[in-house]
Structures are given as structure tokens and as C-alpha cells.
């Protein structure tokens, strides 16, 4: 399951990021907290496929579709 598919008010565990993500970007995502095993919560979905708002490690981020589709959720644990 992709992070993009996470419905509003639901939580999940972050899994791997897509190999399509460049190493540098993957590293930055990890530094922002997008790391395997971290809990992510969807705070808000925007109309017209606008950026989704999630909270992760006490920080709230807005992510657009193109990047949140490349972050996978760990379905086994959620």
C-alpha cells in the first residue's frame, strides 16, 4: 500500500521507499522521519488530489501525490 492511499484519520507504519526515489532524496526523507517502522497518521486529505497532510514524529508535513506514491506502508503491521 502507498502512503497516498492512506485515508483521513488513519494511522499506519512506514515501510520501504520506492527504488525509483533517488538516493539523496531517500536520505532526506529518512532525515525527515520517513523511516521503516515509524508511525504515520493522515491528518487531512485535500480536494482534487491536492497534497495530503500527515503527522510523523510530532511534525506535520504536506506531501504531494507524486512523492507520497513512492513511500510504501508496512501492511503487515498496520
Amino acid at each position: 500500500m502507498q502512503l497516498w492511499e492512506l485515508p483521513k484519520n488513519q494511522s499506519a507504519i512506514v515501510g520501504k521507499v520506492s527504488p525509483d526515489i533517488e538516493d539523496k532524496l531517500a536520505e532526506r526523507l529518512a532525515e525527515m522521519g520517513f523511516e521503516q517502522g515509524q508511525e504515520v497518521h493522515c491528518v487531512r486529505r485535500s480536494p482534487f488530489k491536492g497534497p495530503m497532510v500527515i503527522s510523523l514524529g510530532g511534525t506535520v508535513f504536506a506531501l504531494e501525490q507524486s512523492i507520497s506514491e513512492l513511500i510504501y506502508l508496512d501492511t503487515a503491521q498496520s
Partner: peptide
């Protein structure tokens, strides 16, 4: 663009 461009990730 997809590879080299920074995606929209914004801290609120």
C-alpha cells in the same frame, strides 16, 4: 524533472 527535482514536501 522527476529524478532531479525536489518534490513538494512542506513542514506545517
Amino acid at each position: 524533472l522527476d529524478k532531479s527535482d525536489m518534490p513538494f514536501i512542506l513542514e506545517l
